[in-house]
Computed example of a mutant assay.
Amino acid sequence: MGDVAVGPAPLAAATRLRRHRLILGGLALVVAVVALAGLGLGQVPIPPAEIIAMLLGGTPADPTHGAVLFAIRLPRVVLGLLVGAGLAVAGAAFQGLFRNPLADPGILGVSSGGTLGAVGFIVLGPALGVDFAGIHALPLAAFVGALGATVLVARVAALAGGSTAALLLAGVAIAALASAGTGFLVFLGDDQQLRALVFWTMGSLSAAPLEAIAFALPALLAPVILLPWLARALDAMLLGEREAQHLGLNVTVLKRIVVVVTSVGVGAAVALAGVIGFIGLMAPHLARMALGPGHRLLLPAAGLIGAALVLAADIFARLAVAPAELPVGIVTGCMGGPFFLWLLVRRHARRA
């Protein structure tokens, strides 16, 4: 028998598969390198070999290094990984659900609601005899605020017909109301409270110990673990709601699942790290440029890119004005603005 000829289609598919694996593997390597840099860089530099040895149970060469690694840097790197991946995956899912490249986790008012919950607890807590310094109380207030905004958005959207457009418009309106409420509470706050409010309005990875992260871990992991199972449904949504329904997709159920899962994840992220903007917008676009629009690859790639972006922003925030520290949200905002200007120019050049 002669050799079986291999046509161009299988060869192209195999080449594409190898390329996708290389890209995902490269992104995972980038995340590992940036995480190692986040653990080692700072006022007390720690060599990479010593970091790896300590993480594997070895004794640090300097006791100070062990204290800095496990008490300060490891919690913020773990939180940065979880928050970055969760925001990016949520952003990619929202962009697919709404068929809108500008959709992000804050579009339904989740981030604004979480900020309102935290700021309200900080400003009004003392008048109610509540101390906002607790490890669980303040994040819980932010989480309740985020979920409250989600429930309100869903209720308003249902009264307006339940369409995707109604959900989007309801989210914009609730986000505006929550932002106005936050502004009013900031006006009422004293100097000490205003310093605490900077964390919630601009974002930081410095305030969450490992205990708080472990407590919120299921919520933080919800988008990363659950949304990839909806990849084919989100691909169908790219064709339009009516077309997706013709393919047998229950669009109403899909919207509910995506909104609930992303709201839980984003609410937990806001509760522990404050508002870190643009990650849910930038990471999906970068992933889409590398791997295309299919959500099976887009969601994990966006998660890896989001984790790397947040960790890189945190490293810059710690080193740029040391010994002080910039809010991470300022750094990601400086990254996001030029990125979308470049994206706008790039799209215009393609159409010309």
Rank of each mutant, 00 (worst) to 15 (best):
E50C: 07
Q43H: 11
A61F: 11
S179Q: 06
V119Q: 03
L36I: 02
A233W: 13
L87H: 01
L128F: 12
L69S: 04
A158V: 08
V251S: 01
I225Y: 10
V270P: 04
A196M: 14
A308N: 03
R318S: 06
A244H: 09
G181F: 12
P101C: 01
G161V: 03
F121I: 10
V78W: 04
F94W: 13
L169Y: 08
T150I: 12
V270G: 05
A35Y: 08
V345Y: 13
I107Q: 01
A216K: 10
A67K: 15
R195L: 13
A175F: 11
A166V: 14
A283D: 10
V331M: 00
R346E: 01
A127E: 02
L309E: 01
V260E: 10
V151R: 15
A317E: 03
I46C: 00
H65P: 14
D131W: 15
M289R: 12
W229V: 15
I305W: 07
A287D: 04
V310M: 05
L272F: 02
P101H: 10
G120E: 06
V275S: 05
V331Q: 08
V310P: 07
A302M: 08
L69W: 08
A308T: 00
G171E: 05
A312M: 09
G106Y: 09
D190S: 03
A322N: 01
G248V: 05
V83R: 08
V30I: 11
T332V: 05
P10L: 08
F143P: 00
L205P: 13
A170W: 09
T150S: 07
V110I: 03
L82T: 09
A61Y: 10
T332Y: 09
V156F: 05
